[in-house]
Nucleic acid binder design. Structure first.
Lengths: 242, 242
DNA sequence: TGTACATCAGTGAACGCGCGTTCACTGATGTAC
DNA sequence: TGTACATCAGTGAACGCGCGTTCACTGATGTAC
C-alpha cells in the first residue's frame, strides 16, 4: 500500500515536473520578450512561436495573457526581494548603516540588471490590467528587508534622527500602526513616516536613472546613488556608514 | 503692396488656423486615448475614428505614430511645467519654504489630475520609442522652478543645510557645474547633489502614489506628501514652512 | 503483469478583430498674373 | 476683378501583418482493477 502510493506519487510528480519545466520556459521566454515589446505588447503568440509551440498550447499553462503577466509580476517581485534579502543576509547584523547601503545598492543593481522587469513592477501600470491579490505578498519583500534594518537599528538604540522634521500628521497614525504590524516592528510614528518617505525616495532614484531622467545630468550614477542613500539614511537617523 | 501682403498673410493664417485647430484636436483625442490604451497601445486609427476622419488623413498632420507620441510628450512636459511655474509665480518671492511646498504640491496635483500623461513622461519608457531632442527643453521646466527656489534661497542666505551628509563624491563635480549653468545658479556642490536627490525623491513619491505602491499603506496621502516634502526641504536646508 | 479507461498535452484551423502605412484620387482653397 | 494653375486636406481601397481565444481532434501518458 505504501509502496503503491509511492509509485502513484512518483509518476504524478514526473508528469508535474515536465509541466513545471515548461511553465518555467514560458515565463522565461515571456520575460525576454518584455525587453522588446514591453508589458502592454507582450504577445502569447510570439512566446509560443519562440518555444516552437502552437499558440493555443500555451492555454494549457496559462488561462489567459493576463495570467501570464501576473506570473511575471510575481516572479519579478520575488526576484528583487530575494536579491535584497540575500545581500542583507551577508551583512553583519549590527552594522545597520552598512546593511542600509547594501540593501539599497541591491535594489539598484537588480534594476540595472533587469530594467524591463523593474519597469513591469515599479513602472507605470499596464493599461487594462489589474494586479490580483497574489502579488501583494511578493511585493512587500523588499520593504520587509528595509523595514527590518530600520527596526533593528531602532531596537538597538542606534537610531539618532535629526529633530528638524515637522510633527507627523495625525492622519498617519493608523498607517503607522499597520506598518508596525508588518515591516517596522516597534518603531514610533515619526520614524515610520520618514522610513516610508525614504523608501519611496530610493525607488524614485532608481526609476529616474532607469527611465532616463538622469541623462545628461548625472554622470557617475553609482557614486551619486551611494551619496544620496547615505543622506537619506541620515534622515531616518542611521549612523554614518563605515 | 503692403495691403496685398496683408491679404496674403491673413489668408495664410486662416488656412493655418484651421490646420492648427485640427492638430490640437488630434493631440487632444490622443491624450484621452492614453487613459484607456496607454502609450504603447495608442492607435492612430482609433484617434482618427474618434474624430470622424479616415485614418490616412491623420498623416497630413503627423508623419507617423511616433511623431504623435512625441507631441504628446512635449505637451505633457509643458503642461506640468506651466502648472508648477504658475503656482510658484503666485508665491511671495522670499518665502522659500512656502514656494517649495507649493511647487511640490503642484507636481502632485498635476499628476493626480493627469495620471496617464504623468505616466507617459515620468513612467516607464515606451518600448521601441526613442524620445527626440525636442523633448529636452520642455522636460526641464519643472526642474527649473524647483532649482530656482533653491538657488534663490541659497543666494539670500536662507539655506541652512544639516551637516550630517557625507562629502559629495568627486565625480559629481562636473555635474554640479552643469547644474549651476542651467537650474541651480551659484549653488555649491553639496547643495546641488542634495537638490538632485530631493528632486528625484519628490517624483518618487508621486510615482509610488500614482502607480499603486501606497495602496493599503498610506491612507491620507495629501498630508503624508506634505510632511515628506517638508522633511526633504529640511534636507536641503530650507527653513520650516510658515 | 495486462488490459480498459481516463486524463492530459499539444495540434491546426478558424473567428473576428485591429493595426500602421501607402497610394492614386477628388475637390476645395489659395496664388499669380 | 477674372482666370489658369498650384497647393493642400481628406477619401477609400488596399497591403501585409499580428493579435487573443475557441474548439474539435489526435496521441501519448498515467490510473484502476
Amino acid at each position: 500500500m505504501l509502496c503503491y502510493n509511492r509509485v502513484v506519487n512518483a509518476s504524478r510528480t514526473a508528469r508535474e515536473r515536465v509541466r513545471a519545466e515548461l511553465t518555467r520556459e514560458i515565463t522565461e521566454t515571456a520575460r525576454r520578450h518584455l525587453a522588446t515589446s514591453g508589458a502592454a505588447g507582450l504577445s502569447l503568440r510570439a512566446v509560443a512561436r519562440d518555444l516552437g509551440m502552437v499558440s493555443s498550447a500555451v492555454y494549457r499553462y496559462f488561462p489567459s495573457r493576463d495570467d501570464l503577466l501576473t506570473a511575471l509580476i510575481i516572479d519579478g517581485y520575488n526576484a528583487i526581494g530575494a536579491a535584497v534579502e540575500k545581500t542583507d543576509g551577508a551583512c553583519r547584523r549590527d552594522d545597520h548603516a552598512g546593511r542600509w547601503l547594501a540593501g539599497c545598492r541591491a535594489i539598484r543593481d537588480w534594476g540595472l540588471a533587469h530594467p524591463h522587469e523593474y519597469a513591469l513592477v515599479y513602472g507605470s501600470p499596464v493599461p487594462g490590467y489589474r494586479a490580483p491579490e497574489q502579488t501583494i505578498g511578493p511585493a512587500s519583500r523588499v520593504a520587509g528587508v528595509l523595514g527590518k534594518i530600520i527596526s533593528d537599528a531602532y531596537a538597538s538604540g542606534a537610531l539618532d534622527p535629526p529633530g528638524f522634521c515637522p510633527p507627523v500628521p495625525e492622519s498617519f497614525a493608523p498607517d503607522a500602526s499597520g506598518l508596525r504590524e508588518s515591516v517596522l516592528a516597534g518603531v514610533p510614528d515619526g520614524i515610520a513616516a520618514r522610513s516610508l518617505a525614504v523608501w519611496a525616495s530610493v525607488f524614485g532614484m532608481v526609476s529616474f536613472e532607469l527611465f532616463g531622467q538622469f541623462e545628461n545630468v548625472v554622470s557617475d550614477r553609482a557614486a551619486f546613488f551611494d551619496h544620496t542613500v547615505a543622506c537619506l539614511g541620515r534622515l531616518i537617523g542611521l549612523p554614518a556608514s563605515g
